[in-house]
């Protein structure tokens, strides 16, 4: 057992790690402890547990799926700093997804896929890695393929502008877990939004080629934008219960922020219809584009191959 020695660690601050016989230092982040350990997880009066779980899945799946997409940039970004940035943003979103999926599992244990006896995977991992595509409730925007850097940047911009507007309001949620996740997430997503907005302006005001690409990106991604503001019945019910904002209330604030970006960039969103719903259903109902299946196949393959695996 080593203890901290303020006088002795000037030479190497890492010295304390070496004398330790516990190898967990070298695999940190791989522990399966409860992300809501000790958090007050009582469901507020008047809130339907299944609705709360479905709503947490919506917000958690948005973050999880975009985190996976952004992680695909790892080692492929235009420059090293950007590679690190996209991985950082992915990690923040993954960090937001974890307590949201854990909250969903805790509010409605029936929503969690059953795993073989002896599996060490916690409920939030069971939800992330053992749910099939129709069980995912993310908007279709986040599952769209990365495309080029411009396209990933515009997708992140539309998402972060919306998510920040949502989290700002969710800080006042009657659900204490959602309020806490939101209070933390606001600080993180503010950095994501600024980053995507700055790149959008840089690309639009850069070379002829970068401007062409960012305009093409906006054409491609814009049809997915409106779905963010289309209320699902679950969202309407949780809004009525004081748990989350009504999606349509986010339209005006998001348009105002995006307007600032378009003005600085000299861009205008295209006049194209939004992506059609399928029999009235879309991402929040588990109806997705074919891109999601491929993303999940990669994301879930290791966990599904080793349901009893542990570190």
């Amino acid at each position: 057992m080593t203890t901290h020695d303020p006088a002795g660690d000037q030479e190497s601050v890492y010295a304390g790690l070496l004398g330790d016989t516990d190898a967990s230092h070298w695999a940190f982040g791989t522990g399966f402890d409860d992300p809501l350990a000790g958090v007050d997880t009582a469901v507020p009066d008047g809130v339907d547990r299944a609705d709360l779980a479905a709503y947490c899945l919506m917000l958690g799946d948005d973050a999880l799926v975009l985190a996976q997409r952004l992680a695909e940039w790892c080692s492929r970004a235009p420059e090293l700093e950007e590679d690190v940035t996209l991985a950082n943003i992915a990690l923040d979103l993954l960090g937001q997804a974890r307590p949201l999926l854990a909250r969903a599992a805790q509010a409605d244990p029936g929503a969690v896929p059953a795993l073989p006896p002896g599996s060490p995977a916690p409920p939030e991992d069971a939800l992330a890695f053992f749910r099939d595509e129709p069980g995912f409730r993310n908007v279709r925007l986040v599952e769209t393929a990365n495309g080029d850097f411009a396209r990933s940047t515009v997708r992140l911009l539309l998402f972060a502008v919306w998510r920040l507007a949502l989290l700002e309001r969710l800080r006042d949620s009657r659900d204490p877990v959602l309020a806490a996740v939101a209070a933390k997430g606001v600080k993180e997503v503010a950095y994501h939004r600024d980053h995507a907005a700055r790149w959008t302006v840089v690309l639009a005001r850069g070379t002829e080629e970068s401007a062409r690409r960012v305009r093409a990106a906006l054409e491609a991604v814009w049809p997915y934008h409106d779905e963010l503001f289309q209320s699902h019945p679950v969202e309407r019910r949780v809004a009525a219960a004081g748990v989350g904002p009504a999606p349509e209330d986010l339209r005006a604030p998001c348009a105002a922020v995006l307007g600032e970006v378009w003005a600085a960039a000299g861009l205008a969103p295209p006049e194209v219809p939004g992506l059609a719903r399928v029999g009235g259903r879309a991402g929040r109902d588990g109806v997705h584009t074919e891109e999601l299946g491929r993303l999940l196949a990669e994301m879930q393959s290791v966990a599904r191959a080793h349901p009893l695996g542990s570190w």
Binding site: S24, F28, L94, G95, Q96, V181, E188
Partner: peptide, 11 residues
């Protein structure tokens, strides 16, 4: 936790 995704929390 410092950040939502801080992997150092478990350590």
């Amino acid at each position: 936790p410092t950040y939502s995704g801080c992997p150092a929390m478990a350590a």
